[in-house]
């Protein structure tokens, strides 16, 4: 049976893992390679690395981190942040990443996700959507680190992404991010219902129940950062609990 995935997310700035709240107040947390190894050993099903830096020089450091992480882990990992061209995609894949998540650049030029799916395959082309509620039950797509409202409807954008060939969608609920009050279920389930590709919930995880809530509603994977980084939730305990609730998770990792 296909397992639901637990995915720690590492925001990497200038070679270090950092954590911000609602995309602000960035704090230094850990060494990305050490943290990746720890999550790999604890039974994480996948890892996400977001490059939150912008300059070319730091991008080089980031690719170096990607390669070091690839060397140390035996689970898939996704890289996102600042991906603008098929050359960027090629670079991160060649550095050892398995998937690339594309956000703002896909909004600005949807052909990028089409080209990526054609050239590198749907399996490694992931659409990341930053969404925020603008009216009751209506979510818009935001770009540029959540600063700019595109006016586009998030559910429509997810459907378009699927039509363009992306293999997976990450739904970042901006209202929920960093609040630890649970994932945004209405938004995430609305998107999961609208598409026939895997959906990853992101933003808002604070306790184990938040994971079981979202994973029992047709969502394929749950992503979280600080609850894992600060050890508030341990992955083995989380998986034991999900298993007891009859949510299929990978446990026998050996």
């Amino acid at each position: 049976m296909l397992a639901k995935r637990i995915i720690p997310c590492l925001d990497v700035d200038n070679g270090r893992v950092v954590k911000g709240k609602k995309f602000q107040n960035i704090q230094d947390v850990a060494d990305p390679v050490e943290l990746a190894k720890r999550y790999n050993n604890e039974g994480a099903d996948e890892l996400v690395f977001y490059d939150i830096t912008a300059s070319n020089e730091q991008r080089g450091i980031f690719l170096d981190v990607v390669e070091k992480v690839a060397k140390e882990i035996a689970i898939p990992f996704m890289v996102g942040g600042g991906i603008r061209t098929t050359k960027d995609i090629h670079q991160v894949l060649r550095s050892g990443a398995d998937k690339v998540s594309i956000n703002s650049a896909a909004v600005q030029r949807p052909d990028l996700i089409f080209e990526s799916a054609q050239k590198f395959g749907s399996q490694c082309t992931v659409l990341s959507i930053d969404a925020k509620e603008v009216a009751s039950g209506k979510w818009n797509v935001f770009i540029n680190g959540g600063r700019k409202d595109t006016g586009m409807d998030a559910i429509e954008w997810a459907k378009k992404g699927e039509a363009y060939g992306v293999g997976e969608i990450v739904v970042n609920a901006m209202d929920a991010d960093g609040e630890k009050n649970g994932y945004n279920l209405p938004l995430t389930t609305a998107i999961a219902t609208a598409v026939n590709i895997p959906v990853i919930a992101s933003g808002g995880a604070g306790n184990i129940e938040h994971f079981s809530e979202v994973l029992s509603q047709g969502i394929d994977a749950a992503l979280a950062a600080s609850v894992f980084h600060y050890g508030e939730i341990k992955i083995p305990a989380l998986k034991t609990s999900l298993n007891e609730q009859e949510i299929p998770v990978r446990r026998n990792t050996k």
């Binding site: 296909l2 397992a3 639901k4 293999g167 590709i197 895997p198 394929d220 990978r250 026998n252 990792t253």
Partner: peptide
């Protein structure tokens, strides 16, 4: 949902030197 993406269990169909004899459905990616 397509792609088939994530960890799924293996059902062993034939004994092989590739597997331990008592292997229980392992997850693979």
């Amino acid at each position: 949902k397509v792609p088939h993406m994530g960890w799924n269990t293996l059902d062993i169909q034939q004994a092989s030197p590739l597997f331990e004899s008592k292997l229980e459905n392992p997850y693979v990616y």
